[in-house]
């Protein structure tokens, strides 16, 4: 039973890691395009669009990397959940205003329109993040290994 929990945690971690790394890749590499995508929502003042979009892109990358290697998994899961809640809200707002433009969430040309469908997708992606908050798992995780190692050291002392 414990193995099943670990397996689900590992699957959730790798799924979210892949998702965030995929989403972050283009945003980090082409910050001007991502800033333009952020500005289309017309939610934050122009002076903050570039810094906010750069921070968001790199945060996605850092969270994705942490999830991939299993470093501070709970914190990474908490960031994932917070980001996904924010994205869900943003997509609902876009749906209410009838934006209709590309959400700027993932690479690809105009394949992901902002709106209610995207909100539902983001809300579903919350589930693995919530699972990891409760059960971060230790399989193939740096944090788990380090903790085991430190436990051993404590015992030997």
């Amino acid at each position: 039973m414990k193995s099943l929990g670990e397996l689900i945690s590992l699957a959730c971690r790798l799924f979210l890691a892949g998702l965030f790394l995929w989403a972050a890749h283009d945003k980090v590499w082409d910050p001007a395009s991502f800033a333009a995508a952020v500005s289309r929502y017309d939610l934050i003042p122009m002076g903050l669009v570039n810094p906010a979009s750069v921070l968001l892109a790199w945060l996605e990358l850092v969270v994705g990397l942490c999830l991939l290697v299993g470093l501070a998994t709970r914190a990474a899961a908490l960031w994932s959940a917070l980001l996904l809640v924010f994205f869900t809200g943003l997509m609902i707002y876009a749906g209410m205003t009838g934006a209709g433009f590309d959400c700027g969430c993932f690479p690809g040309e105009a394949g992901h329109p902002a709106g209610y469908q995207a909100a539902l997708r983001d809300a579903l992606m919350l589930l693995p993040a919530l699972w990891l908050l409760v059960l971060p798992g230790r399989w193939l995780a740096l944090t788990g290994r380090r903790r085991k190692h430190s436990d051993r050291l404590t015992l030997s002392v």
Binding site: D30, P31, A32, A35, V54, L55, V63, C66
Partner: peptide, 25 residues
């Protein structure tokens, strides 16, 4: 720490690479 790493890495990347963006367009 994650937020700080993201901010520092983002700032460094934007300063050091040609595709970096400034504070405003």
């Amino acid at each position: 720490v994650m937020l700080l790493v993201a901010a520092v890495a983002g700032l460094a990347f934007n300063l050091l690479t040609p595709q970096g963006v400034g504070w405003t367009p």
